[in-house]
Design a binder for these strands. Structure first.
Length: 565
RNA sequence: UGGGGUAUGGCCAAGUUGGUUAAGGCACAUGGUUUUGAUCCAUGCAUUCCGAGGUUCGAGUCCUCGUACCCCAGCCA
């Protein structure tokens, strides 16, 4: 196995692994795992962990990464989640090969190990109630007190534990605890629970068990059984490391993985707590886990984010132990960067303004086809033909009756270029009774076909358009950030975080006119609508058989900045 | 003095055992190219590394004392 030689930036975890390799620790193996609990959908925060665990493994020759479900709490878990998680990890571009594991597969071994702990007088069955246990635990500044059941005999404990498994006790009546140190300054070491009674059926083991092992006990042993070398987890488990090590030190396992903690991902303007995401879904504040505004993998996918962009994002933000908040703009920028090179450009008018070209031939069938490349900087993407005719639509925002000095677009008497078509000059403005501009009259210069004037005259603005008679009219959804506040997830907003939901996070346009080539756009396919943004075909909804488009992200807009000055 | 962590520009983040000019990305600013006010290209952007002392020829890197913030009292993970 060789040192990390990829282009991935160095980070403290890679440095540790490099050192381990140098010292021939773990016989030169690098073996990680991604260990989600199947109790919800994966989100951008998980993507960071996935990219780290799978990424680190694949950058070392022979390195491997397992997918393991930490499924020790049947009340919260479900196959819906084991399925979606696998599909998400796969979509992100990672492959666990034949190494799909479940902690529940180790239940029998875990049970035997627990008996070993009892025999070694390292665990006991406690009959205190949950409240009593809390009282005995002490506080952050005061030591705990031992349970009166702490010194039961090995025989009694063994018997009681067997009877727990046999279902002789009610939930909460008793539990198995590790016997460590009730006075430890580390709360996790004050005789933590090892097994509790839950008369719930498990999504994989059904009703085989009525006692279930706790995370701390299960996780380290699962890692050891799988031969994991580096067990990467988030910072809040730092205090659990002594316990992780304690269990493995007591038990006859040959492998003792090294737990290394890194900071979880925080993104501004978004929430990533499972509880909150769940609330958004159950309270119908969004359309589901895959609502394009959700920071879930399925949501981002439906929004048009690509695995490449998400992976790039994860590598850009780095891996450290510093508690930070990443600007969501970084993610959006990764998406723009990836989409810029991979999408075909098309013309789409989202907020239409009718334009009649008065000197263009009139009548049925009076139209022509204009060549238009799919990507100005990448000829290999080919081209299509755009139908042009007397009546077209342009973007309302591309016309101003009284334009400021730096406005390059259309105005009374002004000339602009219609992309890949002709120069047009606005000759008349038609308004309704409310004074609202409802139609423009223009003339075109037939010499400028394709967009260049033979006389060499220049035009400042180029705008997009769509032929009215040929346009594909369909639904386009404009998505924006779900929250207005930069920190909806902070403690301060524990109560009112939902009040920061951006009322304009989704705008449905029923009146969008797209170039006709888009009728056949495939589900999930990505485009750039020139001058407005990147869009993808929604994977679920259609409108009268026609594709519906979701805005993935806008284009950078220096004009908008200019305006705000 | 409960315990465990973290502090490098607006946001991230390199900085292998102290060695000479503090990487890179994002953002921002300014110019150039451009039939997308997009892309692309160029340039600029920390006399300073939470603070104060100290060691040293030399410290972001070592020592001391402070300060701020995060995590921990589920039979959740």
């Amino acid at each position: 196995m060789s040192d990390n030689s990829s282009s991935e930036p160095s980070n403290f975890i890679r440095n540790i692994i490099n050192d381990d390799l140098k010292n021939n620790k773990n016989d030169g193996r690098v073996h990680t795992r991604f260990p989600p609990e199947p109790n919800g959908y994966l989100h951008i925060g998980h993507a960071k962990s996935i990219c780290l665990n799978f990424g680190v493994a694949q950058d070392y020759q022979g390195g491997i990464c397992n997918l393991r479900f930490d499924d020790t709490n049947p009340e919260k878990e479900d196959v819906e989640y084991t399925d979606s998680i696998q599909s998400d990890v796969e979509w992100l571009g990672f492959d666990w090969k034949d190494r799909l594991y479940f902690s529940s597969d180790y239940f029998e071994k875990l049970f035997e190990f627990a008996k070993q702990l009892i025999r070694d007088e390292k665990a006991y069955v406690d009959h205190l109630t949950a409240d009593e246990i809390r009282e005995h635990r002490g506080s952050l500044t005061e030591p705990g007190k031992p349970s009166p059941y702490r010194d039961r005999s090995v025989e009694e404990n063994l018997d009681l534990f067997d009877r727990m498994r046999a279902g002789e006790f009610a939930e909460g009546e008793c539990l198995l605890r590790a016997k460590i140190d009730m006075a430890s300054p580390n709360m996790n070491m004050r005789d933590p629970a090892v097994y509790r009674i839950k008369k719930a059926s498990h999504h994989r083991t059904g009703d085989d068990w009525c006692i279930y092992p706790m995370y701390d006990y299960t996780h380290c042993i699962s890692d050891a059984l799988e031969g994991i070398t580096h067990s990467l987890c988030t910072l809040e488990f730092e205090d659990h490391r002594p316990l992780y090590d304690w269990f493995l030190d007591q038990l006859p396992v040959k492998c003792h993985p090294q737990q290394i903690e890194f900071a979880r991902l925080n993104l501004n303007y978004t929430v990533t707590s499972k509880r909150k995401l769940n609330e958004l879904v159950t309270e119908d504040l969004v359309s589901g886990w895959d609502d394009p505004r959700m920071p879930t993998i399925v949501g981002m996918r439906r929004r048009g984010y690509t695995p490449e962009a998400i992976r790039d994002f994860c590598s850009r933000i780095g891996v450290t132990k510093t508690d930070t908040v990443i600007d969501v703009g970084v993610l959006e920028n990764c998406v723009r960067e990836d989409l810029d090179k991979r999408t075909r450009r098309v013309l789409a008018v989202l907020d239409p303004l009718k334009v009649v070209i008065e000197n263009y031939p009139e009548g049925e069938g009076e139209s022509e086809l204009l060549d238009a490349p799919y990507h100005p900087n990448d000829p290999s993407m080919g081209q299509r033909q755009l139908p042009f005719s007397k009546v077209i639509f342009i973007e309302k925002s591309d016309f101003m009756e009284d334009p400021p000095k730096k406005f390059f677009r259309l105005g009374p008497g002004r000339e602009v270029r219609l992309r890949y078509a002709y120069f047009i000059t606005c000759t008349d403005v038609i308004k309704n009774d409310d004074g609202e501009v409802i139609e423009l009259r223009c003339t075109y210069d037939s010499e400028t076909k394709g967009g260049n004037a033979p006389d060499g005259r220049k035009v400042k603005g180029t705008i997009h358009w769509v032929s009215a008679e040929h346009a594909l009219k369909t639904e386009v959804r404009l998505y924006d950030r779900l929250f207005n506040d930069a920190k909806p997830d902070s403690n301060k907003h524990e109560q009112d975080w939902k009040s920061f939901i951006n009322p304009e996070s989704m705008t449905v346009l029923q009146n969008a006119y797209l170039e006709p080539s888009l009728v056949d756009a495939e589900s999930e396919s990505l485009y750039q609508f020139e001058r407005t943004g990147y869009f993808c075909v929604d994977s679920k909804d259609r409108l009268d058989g026609k594709p519906v488009f979701n805005r993935t992200v806008t284009l950078r807009d220096s004009w908008a900045k200019q305006k705000n000055k």
